[in-house]
Amino acid sequence: MPEKNTDKTTVTAEKSGGAAAAEKRAVNRSDMSMAAWTWKEMKRNKVAYALIAPFMILFFIFTVIPVVLSLLLSFTTFNMLEWPDFVFMDNYVRLFLDDDIFVIAIKNTLIFAAITGPASYIMSFVLAWFINELAPKMRALVTLIFYAPSISGAVYLIWATMFSGDAYGYVNGILIYLGLISTPIQFFKNETFVMPLCIVVALWTSLGTAFLSFIAGLQTVDRSLYEAGAVDGILNRWQELWYITLPSMKPQLLFGAVMSITGSFGFGGIVTALAGFPSVNYSAWTIMHHLEDYGGQRFEVGYASAIATLLFLIMIGANLLVNKLLSKVGQ
């Protein structure tokens, strides 16, 4: 954190003049226990707790407690009607050994995330880097063009029109006209095409927060570093990117990774809209769909909680792993 050097243990009350001002200063910790010091600091900062309380209370109710509750419920048979029975790992055993569709779901989710996550991350960075070379007005326009699909709501449904299963679908029409196929392909009802198409559409909508963060990050790289680099023997833009730009942008790279990874697990809605619920032979069925099926439709909350807990662990795990890898960049 920049310009945060007020170490609470060293700033002492004697520095300030009036008693009122002294009270605002951090308390010297050396002559009391940790708990007593913490309590004193908490009382001194009452107003801080008043400021965070409204947000934090809601954050606990709607985000923290649900995650913990999911974990607890995942060991039970809760169904919203009867008192839950404790069944320990039964739900998890059932998921992996007795639920063929879940195995499809986890496979599809991992394929989906492993492609869209890195691809959207790289695409966001590379395009931001290209755009950075443009003049300011052009840069704003091109940014808008790339960013627009991610904020335009259900506009991705146009892909359903373009790849529609009849001869009026743009792609089918062209292919038939060119004589490459004789009957229209039911793209979103075809096991071979449905996943790749959903991935393409997901990528189309994926230039979001990470992309903007990279665009902004590239602007803030210190220009003089490039000149210094040129003096020190940097020969082309690739070396400049590798030795100067990437290391200078590490904070944005970390933030962008979190946004891309979390996003790559959040495309369930697009798949549902394009491929249906369920998709043909579960060919694009993901963990999100499985969760919705058991939680939102069958009300097997215990079982759904096990799915939610696994999904949570996968997302957090992927994020922490990638953050660990990225923090090695430039070291």
Binding site: I52, M56, F59, I61, F62, T63, V64, I65, P66, V67, L69, S70, L73, M80, V258, M259, I261, T262, F265, G266, G268, M288, L291, E292, G295, G296, V301, A304, S305, A308, L311, F312, M315, I316, N319, L320
Partner: peptide, 25 residues
């Protein structure tokens, strides 16, 4: 607290949707 906010960016609301349904009820 800030650490928790950052962790919350690492998963989406699908995870909490089922238990939130109970809360809302």
């Amino acid at each position: 607290m800030f650490e928790m906010i950052i962790k919350s960016l690492m998963f989406n609301t699908t995870v909490s949707s089922i238990t939130n349904f109970i809360t809302m009820t």
